Amino acid sequence: MEIRLLKKAAGLPMDLLLEADPSEGLVREYCSNGFVYEAAVDDELMGLYVLLPLTDGIVEIKNIAVAEDARGQGYGKRLIQHALYEAERLGFGNVEIGTGNSSVDQLMLYQKCGFRIDSIDRDFFTRNYPEPIFENGIQCRDMIRLVYTF
């Protein structure tokens, strides 16, 4: 798998980005202010992530998504490892990531990759998304914030 920085002039793979975040407006905003990395095997898009600098020392993984037919094969973990490598290479000391209270698989993966739960933003999803989001039979209401420190 090759992971590369997507050039700003290239079109965004919106279908995949919207699988991780259903707000096209928010996705376009943080993609324009951050770095979009795509992972491909033989030029077939397998996944992507977005790094968004927040301060001089903190960067956030804003979006991480794996193509549906590539899930369960370790691509998500490899994307996170690459994001951590890039964040450290770029000089950031902390990497943040947020996910919904209903995203149990993501919560498990992030913790396995060394992230620690830092805070909960109650009602984040009900405040910021017009339509209710359901995942794993649970309404996604709260943003669980995790942090990785080098």
Rank of each mutant, 00 (worst) to 15 (best):
103 S>A: 15
109 L>V: 07
5 L>E: 14
4 R>H: 15
21 D>F: 04
136 N>E: 04
22 P>N: 08
124 F>E: 01
108 M>N: 12
135 E>V: 12
58 I>P: 04
26 L>T: 08
55 T>R: 12
25 G>P: 02
84 L>I: 08
90 L>S: 11
42 D>H: 10
115 F>R: 04
89 R>G: 09
85 Y>D: 13
17 L>E: 07
2 E>M: 13
124 F>K: 04
82 H>V: 10
16 L>E: 03
24 E>S: 11
50 V>H: 03
113 C>N: 07
41 V>W: 13
32 S>N: 09
51 L>G: 03
126 T>I: 10
49 Y>K: 03
124 F>T: 05
67 A>C: 10
116 R>H: 07
135 E>S: 13
110 Y>W: 03
90 L>N: 11
77 K>V: 08
55 T>V: 14
57 G>L: 14
44 E>Q: 15
106 Q>L: 14
83 A>F: 01
45 L>W: 05
113 C>S: 09
1 M>Y: 15
101 N>S: 01
96 E>R: 06
79 L>D: 02
60 E>C: 00
74 G>K: 09
47 G>Q: 09
87 A>G: 15
131 E>R: 15
70 A>C: 13
99 T>R: 10
52 L>K: 00
83 A>V: 04
133 I>L: 11
14 M>T: 06
30 Y>I: 01
71 R>Y: 13
17 L>G: 03
80 I>A: 03
77 K>D: 11
11 G>I: 01
31 C>Y: 00
76 G>M: 05
2 E>T: 15
116 R>Y: 07
17 L>K: 08
77 K>E: 15
138 I>L: 12
78 R>V: 04
116 R>N: 06
74 G>C: 12
33 N>T: 05
8 K>A: 09
65 A>P: 08
109 L>G: 09
110 Y>G: 04
32 S>F: 02
110 Y>H: 02
41 V>K: 15
